[in-house]
Design a protein around this nucleic acid. Structure first.
Lengths: 133, 133
DNA sequence: TAAGCATATACGCAAATGATGAAGTATGGA
DNA sequence: TCCATACTTCATCATTTGCGTATATGCTTA
């Protein structure tokens, strides 16, 4: 009921229309997949995951984050903007300094769960054991 | 103890060395951030999230997945390879047909958690409510 | 109000990546 | 053995994206 009928037309191209039809009833809308992907995409960059990880238990300024991430201040600032657009971090000004922190407790569990998973399940990570701090 | 001493040098560039030093003790290694990001990166593509979502409760062939995702068979196959490389999906052959399914129950909770989160927390998504199936 | 510092933005480049169409592989049936 | 089907891989192209340099903005203090 939540699907376009243009979507139903795709069943004509399937090899197994019954199974596909069933899947169709639970499929999200295109824009929902967009949102999901946009969320994961900002996490899909080593520098940004690192920035977020730095902020897990601390409020830090751009300068600190840049140093900890081994990035230029400019690059750091851009990443932080990206993270801010997705409401993953927030900031407050204190004089000249801009303090960044997590906007979103959700990110904590997401990082933790995935870290856990990689540590145990993924061969590549298993080869060089992860110390979950 | 788990950090390079080259990393400690970065403290010279920080505005607040004490805070940064504390963060340093909990930071992961570069390759761990790489792994984390690589994992999230494959989810950072609408088509791939959609493919995974299709597979949540069904085993499907490439042809079906292509139709459901509105992608060419070739593109679908490539995405599936990417997902397979990260051990997110597995496949089995049955005659001419290749059946794909989730390799990893972890992905289910990851998708669910994030969907939930977007539905409730993100303004953009909140504007057009998500029906979590 | 001028100078200096912390941060933000503009811009250009190089690398990564997704889509397409064509060619290649594997399986089963005529 | 030849062909059709289901899928995979390859080569190419267009777009995106992360980074650094240079420039701009915002705030504080002299």
């Amino acid at each position: 009921m939540s699907q376009d009928r243009t979507l139903d037309a795709c069943l004509d191209d399937t090899l197994h229309p019954e199974k596909a039809a069933k899947v169709l009833t639970t499929l999200l809308r295109d824009d929902q997949f967009e949102d999901l992907a946009a969320y994961f995409r900002v996490l899909g960059e080593p520098s940004r995951v690192r920035l977020l990880h730095c902020l897990l238990d601390a409020e830090l300024c751009v300068c600190d984050l840049a140093a900890l991430s081994n990035l230029s201040v400019a690059a750091t600032s851009q990443h932080l903007r990206t993270l801010r657009n997705l409401h993953l971090v927030k900031r407050r000004r204190e004089g000249k300094v801009m303090w960044y922190s997590l906007a979103d407790e959700h990110i904590r569990s997401l990082l933790f769960i995935t870290q856990e998973h990689l540590a145990h399940a993924q061969p590549r990570a298993a080869a060089r054991p992860v110390e979950v701090s």
